[in-house]
Amino acid sequence: MIEIKDLRKRYDGFLALKGVSLKVNPGEVFVLLGSNGAGKTTLIKILTGLLKATEGEALIDGVSVWDEVKSRERFGYMPEHPHLYDRLTAREFLETMGSLKGVNESTVKDRINKLSKGLELDRVIDSEISSYSKGMKQKVLFANSLINNPPNLILDEPTSGLDPRFTRYIKMRIRDQAVKGKTVLMSTHITSITEEIADRVAIIEEGDIVAQGTVGELFERCGCDSLEEVFIEVVNHARSRA
């Protein structure tokens, strides 16, 4: 379970998050939808322990990831940009990450084999990552987020750089994870993907959540029949108020 309570983040006088609160339950896909620079990545970086909140709390299964290093076993993270260790092969990278996440070596090996087959990485798994395309690197990132079979998944723009076939594959895998009872929090700015896989959506604008609910609830609230329209209306309304 992922819980965020009145989270604020300030960078040199600029308030990037203005008291965000939300809760994502097990078995649920929760999508953070927002414009570029709205605060999605900052929120995710605080949740993963990469940034420290100025105020408020970010908890994963009830534990703050900033304070308790061990709690980082409880989630898998996929960042937006595929910054990977280019000089390692995907297998070496995943083996290292698996071991550092506390999984024993034989289990890591099995999982790498399964994930690489599913993601069609098996032919290149022993090549250096430097030779991969952006889409292949995204697949490695996705595999990394699942390597320790964590109960929570935090995915930042998971379909960025992927072709339609693999976008569909990733969407299916995300839904599968939720069906298995895992908590999934993902960010995106693609409304069509959100409509397809989200159980609940939060629209974030200028560091604040301006609308939250199921896709149906959001349609009803705005009287729109597409999430794109909902998003534009909610964001425009928030900007006019500011």
């Binding site: 990469l50 290093v69 989630f75 960042p79 910054h83 260790y85 550092l100 996440k101």
Partner: peptide
């Protein structure tokens, strides 16, 4: 040198000492 790749190590549960 890790630079933007540091996220990988920091999101693991390995202790900072390790």
């Amino acid at each position: 040198r890790d630079g933007k790749r540091l996220w990988a190590l920091r999101t693991t549960s390995a202790s900072p000492g390790s």
